[in-house]
């Protein structure tokens, strides 16, 4: 009884333009987790953009004389062991995090969606092979791939981006293939096939547009996972390398000073948590708003 029957099975077949955009925003602004998620995500994004044009201090200049300052008017959150301003490090760290996340999700998205679409369009042997391969990739979490890559190519941003990207692929393959299969089973696809369209055209014209909202939701959530993975890799020293500031690295630095300046270990972690929480909430909200069929429990 709780499932509102507002969305009959055919809803997703309606072209996106048919649903009034204003309606989306009106519903979006009333959706608590969407609003909170959007605010947090925009906050982190804003910090990253701001760091491109301005930081209170340089995030790279070392000034050992003013190391480990407590918060003050000059250094809002104090300084680290090398005398760098924490706020500036956090701002620039947001930039590294977002960059790694965007590229990694981009890799996962393009390979994953591509393979997922092929699997759904081809079926049979191809599908089996792609799905087995993606199951197999699940056995290699980002940290494991990063370790292998770091062992042969050395640690660094490229290593972490590649590892996280590979780790993202199977999830996108599964989600894409699952929802694409559902679209392939629908009548309008049958009609398109009857009209003589090939599977490539059907994929581009019918399948992809109809699973777009699901992919957007998944990408948002994967972005959050990528941020967590990036932080872990940087913390381990496998990812972003000094002097480039990154949140994970800051935590590693702070850990040796836990007894002296415990707060140094709090800020970067909180930054990661805020970014991840924001994206997760945003993803949940988008799922409710874009695809009512998925939003059964709330």
């Amino acid at each position: 009884m709780s499932a509102p029957l507002t969305a009959p099975a055919g809803t997703a077949a309606i072209p996106p333009g048919a649903r009034p955009v204003t309606g989306f925003w009106r519903r979006a602004l009333r959706h608590r987790s969407f609003v909170l998620g959007a605010v947090l995500s925009l906050f982190v994004l804003g910090a990253a953009l701001l760091s491109l044009v301005w930081t209170p201090w340089s995030a790279y200049d070392i000034d050992v004389a003013s190391k480990l300052h407590p918060p003050s008017a000059a250094h809002w959150l104090g300084t680290d062991v090398l005398g760098r301003d924490i706020v500036s490090l956090l701002l620039v760290g947001a930039r590294s995090t977002i960059m790694v996340g965007v590229i990694a999700v981009g890799i996962g998205l393009s390979f994953g969606v591509g393979l997922g679409l092929v699997a759904a369009a081809r079926k049979g042997w191809t599908e089996e092979l792609i799905m087995r391969m993606s199951d197999f990739t699940f056995a290699f979490p980002a940290v494991l791939s990063a370790i292998m890559l770091a062992a042969v190519a050395g640690p660094g941003m490229v290593t972490s981006i590649t590892a996280i990207g590979i780790f993202q692929i199977p999830t996108f393959v599964r989600v894409t293939r699952g929802s694409a299969n559902a679209i392939w089973a629908r009548e309008f696809v049958l009609a398109a096939r009857a009209a003589g369209k090939g599977s490539f055209r059907i994929t581009i014209e019918h399948v992809l547009p109809n699973i777009l909202s699901i992919l957007i939701v998944q990408a948002t959530i994967q972005f959050a996972l990528a941020i967590l993975a990036e932080a872990a890799l940087s913390y381990l020293g496998l990812g972003t390398q000094p002097p480039q500031p990154s949140w994970g690295r800051m935590l590693n630095d702070a850990q040796t000073l836990l007894f002296q300046s415990p707060m140094l270990a709090v800020y970067p972690g909180a930054a990661i948590a805020i970014a991840v929480l924001g994206l997760n909430l945003l993803g949940d909200g988008l799922r409710d708003l874009l695809d009512p069929r998925l939003a059964r429990e709330r």
């Binding site: 872990a232 913390y235 994970g248 935590l251 836990l258 972690g269 948590a273 929480l277 909430l281």
Partner: peptide, 14 residues
């Protein structure tokens, strides 16, 4: 929801 957002190594540090 908050728990999911915590990096485990940061939670360890806390």
């Amino acid at each position: 929801q908050v728990g999911i957002a915590l990096p485990n190594f940061w939670f360890a540090i806390l």
